[in-house]
Nucleic acid binder design. Sequence first.
DNA 1: TATGGATTGGAATTATTATTTCATATTCCC
DNA 2: GGGAATATGAAATAATAATTCCAATCCATA
Lengths: 288, 288
Amino acid sequence: MSLDRATMDERVPRDFETLRATILDRRESLPKRIAQIAAYALDNPDDIAFGTAASIAASAGVQPSTLIRFAQQLGFDGFTSLQQVFRERLRERNSSYDERLLALRAKAEGGAGHRAIFDGFVAAASTSLNDISRTLDETHLEDAISLLARAETIYVLAKRRSYPVATYIAYALGKLKIRNQLIESAAGLNAEMIAFATPADAVIAISFSPYAPATIEEARAISERGVPIVAITDSSFSPLAQFARVWFEVAEADFAGFRSLSATMALAMALTVGVGEKRRDSGRKRRA
Amino acid sequence: MSLDRATMDERVPRDFETLRATILDRRESLPKRIAQIAAYALDNPDDIAFGTAASIAASAGVQPSTLIRFAQQLGFDGFTSLQQVFRERLRERNSSYDERLLALRAKAEGGAGHRAIFDGFVAAASTSLNDISRTLDETHLEDAISLLARAETIYVLAKRRSYPVATYIAYALGKLKIRNQLIESAAGLNAEMIAFATPADAVIAISFSPYAPATIEEARAISERGVPIVAITDSSFSPLAQFARVWFEVAEADFAGFRSLSATMALAMALTVGVGEKRRDSGRKRRA
DNA sequence: TATGGATTGGAATTATTATTTCATATTCCC
DNA sequence: GGGAATATGAAATAATAATTCCAATCCATA
């Protein structure tokens, strides 16, 4: 009886690949209807993930009870737990790195040397880079570059965690001989600095949750002066987004409580170099 | 009332992108709890796709009924039909992922728009990360962390291109409540700052070719005072290496004339968090 | 600060869905 | 071909989940 197998077989397939192998392995010995649903499951895994027992059974041409028997033969205690495996597969398909990151996190917490910490940061950076190259909106990139290329002076606004990005942008703009101004907090002269900005200028503002109040406040002040803002932030609900003419959503993975900056850096550099290139091009056109 | 909107508004968002746009559009006018679930939905779309109304509501910190009201405000007749949109998104993302990637690559190569620049920086960062995780010397990592963990104050020394890394280290050390001092160039008081350092302190110095003369000069001065230095640099011939007690060789790939910082950042974070952990551990031991 | 309307929380209700049960059919061995 | 074991179908039941409802609370406005 099927229950025997369920109790005997300690190893219930937990991931899709194991499950698939198990099914293929047993396929010969399965009863007709069970084999039918097994074939259907491997051919239409998405349907299993999303459908109800009744709808799947109907599509596969069997009774719901058969579907449950199928699940039980594999060692699950019902259709629901079988379905979990198919759902998990869909989630993981999107982010293969996340799994690795979790493992590393556990390892690092378990106290397995400092190499694990390092690997964790590398993995977080890789994940973030993968993520951004999948999700970056090309139109936004073009818009942001056009906007910045027209600016007389580019102001760069970021505090705390985002500050390193700002300094890198300022460095790169300087090297490209693009006039820019880093809005620093050290001297406390930010308000005065902002007062110089005009609508002919532009701002790159960077802030992630928890948003530094000063950044938000300064972004508001400067946008009220009619200066267009390009924002890099982490959620559509970021307070920065509402002041921005163009904004980017960047999801950085974190490790040990510190988020990666790699994706933000890559985007920042693309903006910077993009502006440099655009200016060179239009300069050439004008001269010709 | 919400029903009015549902009947008036013929266009219920059918695909995820439209839905997203609709939510962002209305976000200002949404009540607090509804906004809360809206933010959660956009940030964790996978959870919406798979969860039950109750489980999602719990994760987002609202009542199930609020979740349903949210769906209704958007014109759906209930949570279930809202969920369909999130499920559809997962199906499509998976099925078309490969072909989308191919299209993207072809476009970047052919059109050579600004997307290509962005991809270049992402590639440079990925390469650098791969590289460093292959070549990092674990012994050096342990040595450096031990050395830094013993320091009373950690001085951070970097200019120009490496400066962003220094600011990030300073930020992270601060968050971990580890005493540190960023040696900045702004006020021109570096010599005085350095004069405070003693052999009981330590320095993290970062410099890449072409080595900023100031960094080298300050590294020399501080090492002559007997302060141990951990260096991150790009070659065994680096002038920094000769002053350093421990040094790391990091090869960053470059694109469009700018080198990535991702590998350096990952290493810097590993050092920082490693020191934090080491201190916590030995503190615990001492107390016990 | 009182008042009406909107918003929210939480329990009650309804709907949907998974699972069980049992009668019937099929298969396989003797 | 007969009989036991297994497999299947269909409906009943149990479990789970979505939705509704109503009282309490919050908020803006007079």
